[in-house]
Design a protein around this nucleic acid. Structure first.
Length: 721
DNA sequence: GGTAGCACCAAAAGC
DNA sequence: TGGTGCTACC
């Protein structure tokens, strides 16, 4: 059994890391630069508390943002400490608040089996509230209103507080909708993600007994990625830390890239003020990247003013210069990246050690297409999440209704799925009836005639009610996986998809099978498997945790936001252009510093090679745009950067305009070697000065003595005697 | 009550 | 360009 002893685990740490581990009493702020070993600090600190100081595992609360991070931390601690690691509270903000809130829900008039609405549910509920209040859906877009409500909750503004601060007519409407939205949630015994934090803080603030209980429970609180906390999360930590004062926050202000979802960088910048007598430690030694990469990162981020001074360095040498490459358009960009990846693979890189980052998902398509043509295996991170897929959500909604009949949103979702002739008219009559008699929608299903439904509708609704009743009694006896199977069978869901006979429907059935498999896994590993706890668990679960089976040889494509926390030997960042990166909206909305941090995050993912590309023209959203190179490229230090302009396709402009569009790679290129004389379609004659893997050739042209880098696949080159 | 077709619009994404 | 949400029809 692995038992960590201080001698062994402290020897693995550099002085700053060691100090962060040993400074256990009082507030601690660890400014952890990219690649500086902050996970190591967090895990060693927890191990130290337990094995050297005798702190009980359940007195430690370690908070992360994602389930993935929590899982990784638990895994590492289990290998250091053995089974005691099980008892440590290693949770996301939401799951930690979920636990506390479930224990205290009655104080706020909720039952402890409350349903958690995901973002789609939330928007649907807002939409319903807007309709109920008879607001013009053109002026008040559900998405936008929901964003306002979410912001308000992140700032701990309850409907009443929000109403006090109304500053415009629009706000006035938001306030009205917010109040109704919150009432509807409460009626359904449901909370949204933001409520989990806001209501937990509310309970802790309003009820001293509850506050005292939880404050005393956690002698040591640790938070990862502190720069991403919003106000509610900050307040939550502040309250929990009031008794023991042992709050340890780890983060990096330079990697704060989530302001758009409520993160407030001031939390980390002002930690020392908010938590008096804080000890601050900066981790600046980087174990990931070469200095060419780190100095580029340092130079860029130094332009920001909202930060704490910090300079990354490493012992890994200068390494290859960072390359900035200008290409003609998005196709040339994709081809260039593909050729470079081929070259890296020839050099011995595995595809899984290479990543392509972009600012927005829309950029991935071109790249994917070219990678396919080049037969480079890749995987795209992002896209629709497993539990948010319609068929899975439907199945979950059934389970929610069985567990919590008052949950109106879930009931409305499944009322007519699969089709059973219960349409909008029927549902609105039922809703009106429920409203008028002060009963839940579910209860109204029992009074279809009184609700004024026509014969066929009465029959359909009664059928639904009977179905739900019998499933509910099945739920008493069956274990979760069997119950799900029962739901799928009895509702005819699978049958309905099979009848569609489309590939898409086949995929949906497979997803449902995967869903049942997931429930089996839960059934096996849960300590006390119940429908309720299963639902609580999966509603806080995201795709990342599920699909961990990364193909070993695949190149990874993702947005830079998704890349946070990851590292690759070689990184390509494409589309480093004004309007794209920085994005046009960030320029308008004064978000340049955050955008620069995002660039910084992208740069610091690279271990050995970093290539930044920008195109002089680009087809985006059906329009050709001409973007300038990103201002961030001008901020790179000249010493460590190599700039190139790739003119592979420039001959298009001279050649036959009619067929310039569909360029096919040439299958037979001339066999060239250094020193050969060549002729280029437009640039004339020259001499090959360099050949690189991946079909790149450098030619010095006789006409002007210039050297051009060309792609053999596309350049009109022929060998001359 | 269901669906085909057509406007419309457009970062980033955790729980 | 491509996905989505609503109107007009069957």
């Amino acid at each position: 059994m692995p038992v960590a002893s201080p001698e062994t685990y402290l020897a693995n740490l550099n002085p700053a890391q060691r100090e962060a581990v040993l400074h256990t009493e009082g507030p601690l702020l660890v400014i952890a630069g990219a690649g500086s070993g902050k996970t190591r600090v967090l895990t060693h600190r927890v191990a130290h508390l337990i094995s050297a100081l005798g702190v009980k595992p359940n007195e430690i609360l370690a908070i992360t943002f994602t389930n993935k991070a929590a899982g990784e931390m638990r895994e590492r601690l289990t290998s250091m400490l053995g089974p005691v690691a099980r008892a440590i509270w290693i949770l996301t903000f939401h799951s930690a608040c979920g636990r506390i809130l479930r224990a205290e829900a009655e104080r706020l008039g909720y039952r402890s089996n409350f349903t958690i609405y995901d973002s789609a549910d939330q928007v649907r509920l807002v939409k319903q509230c807007l309709e109920e209040l008879d607001k013009d859906p053109k002026r008040f877009v559900p998405r936008g209103i929901h964003a306002q409500i979410s912001n308000a909750k992140n700032l701990l503004l309850t409907p009443a507080l929000y109403a006090e601060r109304v500053a415009s007519f629009y706000d006035q409407t938001v306030a009205e909708v917010y109040a109704l939205y919150q009432k509807r949630l409460h009626d359904s015994n449901a909370v949204d993600f933001d409520d989990m934090l806001m209501l937990t803080v509310e309970v802790l603030e309003r009820f001293p007994e509850a506050r005292a209980r939880w404050q005393k429970a956690f002698r040591y609180v640790l938070v990862d990625e502190y720069q991403d906390t919003n106000h509610a999360q900050y307040r939550f930590l502040q309250i929990l830390g009031e008794h023991h004062h042992n709050v340890c926050a780890v983060g990096d202000p330079d990697q704060s890239i989530y302001a758009f979802r409520g993160a407030d960088i001031r939390n980390i910048l002002e930690f020392e003020r908010d938590f008096p007598e804080t000890r601050t430690i900066a981790l600046e030694q980087n174990y990931r990247s070469t200095n060419a990469i780190l100095e580029s990162a340092n130079a860029v981020i130094a332009r920001n003013s909202e930060r704490k001074e910090k300079r990354l360095w490493s012992e890994l040498g200068d390494g290859d210069p960072v390359r900035v490459v200008e290409v003609e358009d998005e196709n040339a960009e994709a081809r260039y990246v593909a050729s470079q990846i081929a070259a890296l693979v020839e050099e011995g890189y595995s595809g899984s050690e290479i990543a392509i980052f972009y600012r927005m998902n829309a950029q991935s398509r071109q790249i994917e297409q070219t990678l396919r043509l080049s037969q480079i295996d890749y995987q795209v991170i992002g896209g629709p999440r497993f539990y948010e897929r319609a068929e899975v959500k439907d199945a979950i909604a059934y389970l929610q209704v069985l567990d919590n009949p008052t949950d109106a949103i879930s009931l409305l979702r499944i009322a007519n799925r699969p089709r059973r002739a219960i349409g909008d008219t029927t549902l609105s009559r039922l809703i009106a009836y429920a409203e008028a008699h002060g009963i839940s929608l579910h209860a109204a299903l029992g009074h279809p005639e009184e609700a004024g439904l026509a014969k066929p509708a009465v029959k359909a609704v009664t059928g639904l009610k009977n179905l739900l009743d019998s499933l509910r009694s099945a739920a008493q006896e069956l274990e979760v996986p069997e119950l799900i199977q029962e739901v799928l069978d009895r509702t005819g869901t699978v049958e309905a998809y099979e009848a569609e006979r489309t590939i898409e429907a086949r995929g949906r059935i497979e997803n449902l099978e995967a869903f049942v498999d997931g429930a089996r896994e839960y059934q096996q590993q849960a300590q006390e498997p119940t429908l309720g706890s299963y639902l609580q668990e999966i509603s806080l679960f995201s795709a990342q945790d599920e699909l961990d089976d990364v193909e070993v040889s695949n190149v990874t494509l993702m947005t830079i936001h998704n890349a946070k926390g990851l590292e690759f030997r070689a990184v390509f960042i494409v589309g480093v252009e004004e309007e794209i990166f920085p994005s046009s909206r960030s320029i308008e909305e004064q978000g340049i510093e955050e955008e620069r941090r995002l660039f910084y995050v992208g740069i610091t993912r690279a271990e050995e090679r970093l290539v930044l590309t920008h195109a002089s023209s680009r087809l985006l959203w059906g329009r050709t745009t001409h973007n300038l190179p990103s201002r961030f490229l001008d901020e790179l230090p000249s010493g460590q950067v190599e700039r190139e302009r790739l003119r592979a396709a420039s001959w298009r402009n001279y050649g036959t305009p009619a067929q310039t569009r569909d360029l096919q790679p040439k299958t037979d290129h001339p066999a060239l070697s250094t020193g050969d004389s060549v002729r280029h379609g437009t640039l004339g004659e020259g001499v090959v000065t360099r050949l690189e893997a991946g079909g790149l050739v450098t030619v010095r042209f006789a006409a002007d003595g210039s050297e051009r880098k060309l792609m053999l696949d596309y350049a009109p080159l022929e060998k001359i005697a």
